[in-house]
Write a protein that binds this DNA or RNA. Structure first.
Lengths: 327, 327
DNA sequence: GGTCACTATGACAACGTTGTCTCCACCCGG
DNA sequence: CCGGGTGGAGACAACGTTGTCATAGTGACC
């Protein structure tokens, strides 16, 4: 900036005035300054500006499990859209379902003085966030609640959705329904399992633990589970996939199976409607999730001090075929 | 920081020493300072630190068409992985295939003094980048080259891949092959069309313009194209989808068609192997694309001044079924 | 006991901006 | 001709850090 000032023959303050469109600069002076800026390729340093003005940095942080997972990338997109409408930019990070990494990312974002943080938490302990939140960094939890603090949270109706899935299958005659979930440490996985139990109860199906498998989904694990649960005289006739990752692995494992069970997936995914049979899913609006969370975050950024809110978004079953086959 | 200093009864410089793990601080003093930091929830302001040290900000910018598109989110993930290994964080933005938005994002990233920028360019004019690059912000173009400047670029072999697709279909007896591409303003779309022509020539197929359609893919446009190209006496017996978006819309349009043409998609996509028939694709390693681009960027960040490089990554045809049906 | 090396600490300036205050020149009305 | 208002511009401090240099204290050695 001082280079620009020297070249234009003015003080740096005048350059500052020009780049900030402040009035009270003579048009001729402004033009000289602009020319100097152009010539030198000057670009104002936003970091210094924010420091001096004590203003916000114009950034928010978003932490998900994996930005490459279509579910989270859709979330990312929705968040970005709102952030842009508020003139903010988005720092993203993948926690890889690792609570240490989550913590590291959050604290680094705080050190960068982001205006707020959206997080799909990996861990269950969020005490480390208390000083940051007290210091004025709003945090909104997405898809899973905070572990041991009260904070703004936006969830989907995991319980209701899974109950609906069980009911749907029961209505089509299934009594032996398997549930393949993710690691029970994950809130949504545990909650959906709870919904599965509750669904069994409500439909007069005896809950059979041997039909349940809860692990981080890998092709191997899902393949084994399929073998175990879907073969033999007492095999399950239907299966619920606890999330989109499980569903994809499950579909691959079932591709060459002789008998295909009825299937419902929690989470919709691209091309589910084009498979054979098309996959019945419990769908929820991921964009709406990101949208709601980001809107909530920005209301906090703008000073909303009301008590922490908990928003639960609805889900709905989309019957496409795979869930409507008879036992 | 001065609050911490006051509470611990030391100077701010000593606090600085403690948070930077500098030696020559008495253990007792350090402990007092740490306690004060803990009590006040102090977190060092990275912006101020970077300003003072004149060091890099520890961030890079990534601009793609749409962070929600699985193709770009996989790229995002690969970039993030490299960035993390270099201790950097990633600012992301979606250009929405709009060159003004691209420019806006780039310039804002520059104002934030990112250490480097990775961009899938939307526009064809990048003169605006010259001052920024001269000022020391390295830029690497991904998937598409820069419009009117020379710069580091990482591409995939669009030409070769499409030639291979045509050859594959020709080898299975197809002579009337349709090509459904994206808008010809997009480099990859134009290049793949060029590959299509070249592939026709090499396989002794007369290039028939009426079998080509180049537009931004929407369900309507693809549906119309399917009607036009795949029906009637002179219909195409095979079709090449110019990218993953086109492929998805095409599959949906074909789902209820009576005669299904042979099909090859440029770009692999999730579940392509589970469709009926499984979709033959020209696959390329999106992670490798992000990886190579990020590695190149960081070599520039670390001072590599060699002439701009152009990297072209190989593609390979994955025969799964849809491309092997006879006319 | 004086010099020396070394440890632990602080004062101060500077990074690139911008807010505040001040200053000067000019114009207007009386 | 003077007082007051206004438009245009600069000097200076401050944002929260850290690099540089200075200083005071402590042993150790000859």
């Amino acid at each position: 900036m001082s280079d620009v000032a020297r070249l234009a023959g003015v003080s740096i303050k005048t350059v500052s005035r020009v780049v900030n469109d402040e009035p009270a600069v003579h048009p001729d002076t402004a033009e000289r300054v602009m020319a100097a800026i152009e010539q030198l390729g000057f670009r104002r340093n936003l970091g210094a500006r924010n420091l001096r003005r004590g203003s916000t940095t114009g950034t928010i942080g978003l932490i998900v499990e994996d930005v490459g997972n279509p579910f989270y990338s859709e979330l990312n997109r929705a968040v970005e859209r709102i952030a842009t409408s508020f003139g903010r930019q988005v720092l993203t990070g993948s926690s890889e379902e690792n609570s240490d990494r989550e913590r590291e990312l959050v604290l680094e974002f705080c050190a960068r003085r982001v205006d707020g943080i959206l997080v799909v938490p990996a861990g269950l302990q969020h005490g480390y966030l208390v000083p940051e939140m007290r210091a004025g960094t709003p945090v909104v939890f997405i898809d899973r609640p905070a572990g041991d603090i009260v904070a703004d949270t936006v969830l989907v109706d995991n319980l209701g959705g899974t109950i609906e899935a069980v009911t749907h299958l029961a209505r089509h005659g299934h009594r032996r329904i398997a549930f393949l979930g993710d690691s029970p440490d994950i809130f949504t996985a545990a909650e959906r399992l709870r919904g599965f139990r509750e669904g069994c109860v409500r439909n007069g199906i005896s809950y059979d633990e041997s039909l349940v498998s809860m692990r981080t989904p890998t092709p191997e694990y899902i393949g084994d589970a399929v073998q175990r649960l879907l073969e033999g005289p007492d095999a399950a006739t239907a299966v619920i996939a606890g999330n989109n990752r499980v569903a994809v692995h499950l579909l691959r494992a079932l591709a060459h199976a002789e008998r295909r069970p009825a299937m419902v997936s929690f989470d919709d995914f691209e091309l589910a409607d084009l498979l054979d049979p098309p996959v019945t899913v419990v769908a929820h609006d991921v964009s709406a999730l990101g949208h709601a969370a980001a809107e909530l975050l920005f209301s906090r950024v703008q000073g909303d001090q009301s008590p922490p809110r908990k928003v639960v978004l609805p889900v709905h079953l989309v019957a496409r075929g795979s869930g409507e086959v008879a036992p």
